[in-house]
Amino acid sequence: MIRAIGEIYAAQLRTSLAVQFQYRMSLAIWMIGRVIQPLVALVVWTTVARARGGDVSGYSEGDFAAYFIIQMIVTQATFSWIMWEYDYIIRSGQFSFRLLRPIHPIHADVADNLAYKVLTLVILIPAAFFLAWLFPPTLHWQWWNIVAGLLATVIAFIMRFTLEWMLAMTALWTNRVSAVNQTYDVILIFFSGYFAPLAVMPQLVQTLANFLPFRWLIAFPIELTLGRLTPTEILIGFGAQLFWLVIVQASLRYVWRAGVKQYSAVGS
């Protein structure tokens, strides 16, 4: 079973890599937006830090630089475009073909996503060094920070992908999901540590963020990598990640079953 899945992934990855390599120019151009966002946030917060005499809630200029460079990497590693893609796939009826395949369609999407991540490393890594050269980051990490941060990023990827894939299934019930997608984006931006480290956010946002899954997707892997967390906080973080992972996985199963029953193809 495991071997079969492994072979399917290997084949799917090869296909996805070949397909997406055809669009390498588009991939490169799409990356502009993904570098601009952390750069803009970094500039804004650096400006604020300078105005405050060098420090905002425990973040100096160099800390902000380190935070947003790692943010760019964690965001790139965990993000998916699946909610927008499925809006189209379901509305246009192409979903039928995916249902006909002998395995769960999520696997093809994961492989597709991973292929994209592998290809865009060519731009992401130079971009990270470029930002680090422009805004010298303050780093005091140990080797185990990076290992633990990587592990947290992998869990965050699985969790975010499951969550967004589940939300993408909203399109099975309504063909106007853009409102759902936009709301999700705005919540994610403010409650995940994407726009700013949670420590500099207003108290209300920080409190609410504790009850939402989003901070474990972005803020936790970043803070862990940067060595800003105490051992207790690290344990709580991994615990919360696993807790939410179980919840979204279970919800996905439920939503998937209900959704497939709901689906009626166009033009059959």
């Binding site: 804004v44 604020v48 105005a51 905002v56 809630s57 403010f190 500099v200 207003p202 946002v205």
Partner: peptide
């Protein structure tokens, strides 16, 4: 709102 929660003026 988040930015001006921390500072009075931005540049």
């Amino acid at each position: 709102a988040v930015v001006f929660n921390q500072t009075d003026t931005l540049a």
